[in-house]
Amino acid sequence: MARLYVRRRVLIISSLVIILVIVLFQPRKTSHEYQKQPNNNHKETNTDLKHNLVMFTTWRHRAKKVHAREVVLRNWRHLSPKIQPLIFTKTGVLRDRCLAENWLVLPEDEIRCLNKIPTLRGMFNSAMSTINSHLYGFSNGDLVFAKDFVKSIEVILSDESLKNKPLLILAKRLNIEYRPYRNTAFAYDDIPRIAKQGEYPKEGSSDIFITNKLFPWKRALELVIGRMGVGMWLSAFARALNVTLIDVTNTSTVLHLTTDGNQESLKNIDMNCNHDIIKANNLTCDNFSVGFIDCADHATNYKQNGDIRIFKKQYFKSYCFKPAFYRFVDKIKARFSVELSNNYYEADFSTKGR
C-alpha cells in the first residue's frame, strides 16, 4: 500500500510539473499581431477609433532592398500613433522584425497572378475588417514620409464636408537614388532637405492609395500591387463612380528610395497580370491618362499663413476628359447598374491652369 501511495504521489507531482511547463512556455501572441476574424460586414474587432490612418504595405525579399527597407521600417514607426504602420506577410523573420518596430502584422489573404501577389482590394478588406481607423491606405514598400504628410491627413479628417463621402487620397513621390553606404540615415527630420535632390516621375500615377470605408471596394477588380495598371485604373474607376479624389502632393513630402531603377515591375514575368484581369472583366480604359493624379477633383496647397487647405479644382488637363473616360464610365454603369450624378461633370474643364 505504501509503495502504491508513493507511486500515485509521484504521478500527481509529475503531472503538475508538466502542466506548469506548458503554461510558462506556451507562445504568447503579441498585441501587435492580429488574428483575422471572418466577417463579411467589415465590422471592427474594437469599437474605439484609435488611428487617423492605418498605412500598409507588403514585401518580397530582395537583397538590394534590405538597407532601404530598414529605413522604411524606422520612418513609418515615427508616423505613429496618428498613422499606424501595418505589413501583410507570412514570413516569420519579416513579421518579427516589423513587430519590433511597433508595426502591426496581418497575413496575406487574396492573391493573384503567377507570382502570387496580394491584391489591393484584399488588403484593404482585411485591414478594414480587423483594425479600427478613420482611413486605410496602401503605400509602396520603398516610400518614406515627412511630417507634412501626417498634417495633410489631419486636415482632410477635420473637414466636415468630407465626412460622408467616399474618398480616395493620392500623392506622387520624389525619386531619390538610394545608396546604402552613402545615405543610410534618412532621419525623419532630414527628409524635407533630402527631397530637394529628388524629382517627380514623368508619368502621372499615384504611389499611395488612401480611402475611407465608403470607398466602393466591393466593386473593385482583384488587381495586384507592384504591376502595371493598378494605380491609373483605380483612379479612373473612382472617378467613374463619383468618389472624391484628393491629391495631397503639394503638401506631402514622399520619397521613393530607388534601388533598382523606377520601372521594376517591367522586369517581372507576370508584368501584364493586371491588364489581363482588366481585359477579362471587360473594364479596359482606352487611355489610362484619364486615371492620372492630375485628374483628381480636389487638391491641397498652402495658405499664406502656412496652413494647409483643401480646394476643389476648377481647371483640369485636357486628357482628364477625353472620350475614353466617358466610354469607361459607360462600362462601369453597365457592369454595376449604377446611377451616376452629373454634378461632378459641371466644372469648367479648360486646360488653363488650376
Rank of each mutant, 00 (worst) to 15 (best):
L221W: 03
I278T: 10
D307G: 11
I246M: 03
F149H: 00
N102E: 15
K147E: 14
Q263V: 15
L99E: 04
F292G: 15
P27E: 02
K151R: 12
G306T: 09
T251N: 03
I22F: 14
N305R: 07
S318N: 15
Q263I: 10
L94Y: 01
G122N: 03
S205G: 13
L241H: 13
I278C: 10
Q84N: 04
R354Q: 11
K29I: 11
E264F: 09
V6P: 00
L20G: 09
K218Q: 15
K64F: 12
F349N: 13
I194C: 09
P81D: 01
L214S: 09
K213G: 14
W233E: 07
V329W: 06
L157C: 06
P166K: 02
V21N: 12
E108A: 02
P323C: 04
G137A: 03
N46S: 11
R327Y: 04
L120C: 07
E33C: 00
Q197S: 15
R28A: 06
N242C: 07
F138M: 04
F288Y: 13
N305Y: 10
Q37V: 13
N46H: 12
L214F: 14
V224L: 01
R239C: 11
R3S: 14
I176K: 00
N272I: 07
C113F: 08
W217S: 11
N175E: 15
L79Y: 00
R9E: 14
L157V: 02
Q35A: 13
A63L: 12
G204L: 12
R173H: 05
E44I: 08
T251F: 02
Q314W: 09
L99M: 03
L234N: 10
R9Q: 13
V290H: 05
I83T: 11
Y5P: 02
I131M: 04
V254Q: 02
P27Q: 08
